[in-house]
Amino acid sequence: MVDMDVSYAEISSSPSQRMMRSLFGRGIPYWSLLIFGLVVIAAIGGENIAPHDPNGLDLGSAFKPPSWLEGGSIDYLLGTDNLGRDIFSRMIAGARVTLTVAVYAIVISGGIGALIGMIAGYFGKIVDTFIMRLVDIQMSIPSLALALVIATVLSPSLTTVIVVISITYWTWYARIIRGEILSLKERDYVALAKVAGCSTTTIFVRHLLPNILNTLLVLASLQVGQVIIFEASLSFLGLGIQSPDVSWGLMLADARNYIGNAWWAITLPGVAIMLTCLSANLIGDWLRDTLDPKRRQL
C-alpha cells in the first residue's frame, strides 16, 4: 500500500549526496564490482600474472617501501617484506588461497546450514528440538579449540581450514534460516501448496528456497569478511595455510613482528581484506535488491 513504502522516499539530492549514493546507495555498485573483479582475476591468474615469484627471497631488497614512498622502486610496486618478497606478487598469490577458502567454506557451511535450518523450521517438533540442541552444543564449543583438534587429526592445510570454518559456521546459517522458515511456513501460499497436492520436496524447492535466497545471499556476503579473518587467525596460529602457500591472513601474521619497520607489509594485505569484504557486502546488498521481483520494478 502507498503508506508503506515510505522508506524508499526520494529526497532532493546534492552532488555529495549523489556520490554517497553511488558508493552506498541502491544503484549498481560499480566500485565494488571493480574491486571484486580484480580480486577474482588475481585469484584466477595467481602466480602467472604476478611480476615476481611470490616466494622469491631477496634479503638484499628487504623492507623496501611501496613505490610512491621515498626509497621505493617501481619494480616493487607495493614494497617488500622482511625477506625481500614482493608484497604485490604475494597479494596476488594470496587472493587465490583466500578466495578458495571463502568460496568452499561458504558453500559448504551455507549449504549444510541452510538445509538443516529448513528441515528444523519446516518439520518442527522433535526434529527441530534435536537439531537446535545440536546447534547449541556446536556453538558452545570454542572454534579455535575445535580447530586445534581438527588440525591435529587432519594436519594443517587448506582442507583443514575449510573443514574448520564450515563446522564453525553452519550453525549460523541453520539458526537464521530456521527462523526465516518458521515465518515462511505460516504463509498462506505454503498451506495452499499443500492443499494443491504439492509434495514436500516441491514445497521446499518452489516455495521455501526461493524465498530464503535473499537471506542466504546476504549471510554469505557478510561471511566473506569473517571467513577471511578466521582463515588469517588459523594461519597465524600455525593451524591453517602453511608456507610456501600464501594467504592474506598469513601475510598479516608474518608481517606482525615488523610493524615498526615496515607498516606497509601488514597494512596493505589488511586493506585488501577490508576492501574485498566491503565490496562483497555491497554486492550482496545489490543482488538482494535486484533479485527481489517486488523491488525490480519499483
Binding site: 502507498v2 503508506d3 513504502d5 515510505v6 524508499y8 522516499a9 526520494e10 529526497i11 519499483l298
Partner: peptide, 11 residues
C-alpha cells in the same frame, strides 16, 4: 502529498 521514488502520491 507523499513524495516517493515512484512519483508524487496525492493522498
Amino acid at each position: 502529498y507523499l513524495y516517493l521514488k515512484r512519483g508524487v502520491v496525492r493522498a
